[in-house]
């Protein structure tokens, strides 16, 4: 039996970064019931790690978005294929690529509507998750399409780029919305 429930909840909350009330609800049986000595015993736990992650060779991609509101791809110096997401080496030619400016429009190549997402997306469902082709790129990039009525999403829909006001240098800095003519 847990000796001091308040103390146990305090420590559990600190450990897994979850409010005490929610932990209390999840562990009601262990806290208030009288489980036998052989009953399965569950514990609150968490796996957590922080990073100072480097974007390496594609750093410029995120700086251009963050500092200049400009989308860039990379073009193979041999075959000319334009990569987005960018890569500093072409995996077909094994040759370096160079940075090229891309357009601000795109089209949906395939999509789905997510009604049930991970805990990170609580409050954001339903959302459209799509592969889009950005003007000037030869490959597709995964995007969320922000739109009032997600059911209006369709293959071939024309899109236009929008940038976040305060940009952090990650994929959340920009997104696509249906182009004016689609509305």
């Amino acid at each position: 039996m847990i000796q001091d429930k308040a103390q146990w909840l305090e420590e559990a909350s600190k450990k897994i970064k979850v409010p005490k009330e929610l932990i209390e609800k999840a562990f009601k049986d262990e806290l208030d019931g009288n489980p036998s000595i052989d009953a399965p015993l569950e514990i609150p736990d968490i796996m957590d790690i922080t990073y100072k992650y480097t974007y390496g060779g594609i750093s410029r991609f995120f700086r251009e978005i963050r500092d200049n509101k400009q989308l860039y791809g990379t073009k193979c110096t041999k075959c000319g294929k334009v990569w987005l997401p960018p890569r500093i080496n072409c995996n077909e030619c094994y040759t370096p690529t160079q940075w090229v400016k891309l357009g601000s429009t795109a089209g949906i190549v395939t999509y789905t509507i997510v009604y049930y997402g991970t805990s990170v997306f609580f409050g954001k469902t339903p959302y459209v998750c799509a592969f889009v082709k950005v003007a000037g790129a030869d490959t597709l990039i995964m995007q969320n399409i922000f739109m009032e009525d997600v059911k209006k999403a369709r293959i071939g829909m024309k899109l236009t780029i929008q940038f976040k006001e305060h940009r952090n240098g990650d994929m959340g800095d920009f997104w696509f919305v249906p182009a004016q003519e689609e509305l």
Binding site: P85, T110, T112, V114, G117, F121, C129, M142, M171, G172
Partner: peptide, 24 residues
Amino acid sequence: MTFENPMGLTAAASYALPLIAHIN
């Protein structure tokens, strides 16, 4: 983690993307 995880890709979406292209 850089390009696809932040877009809210799920296991189901991962299957739905090729499927919807196929249906189309």
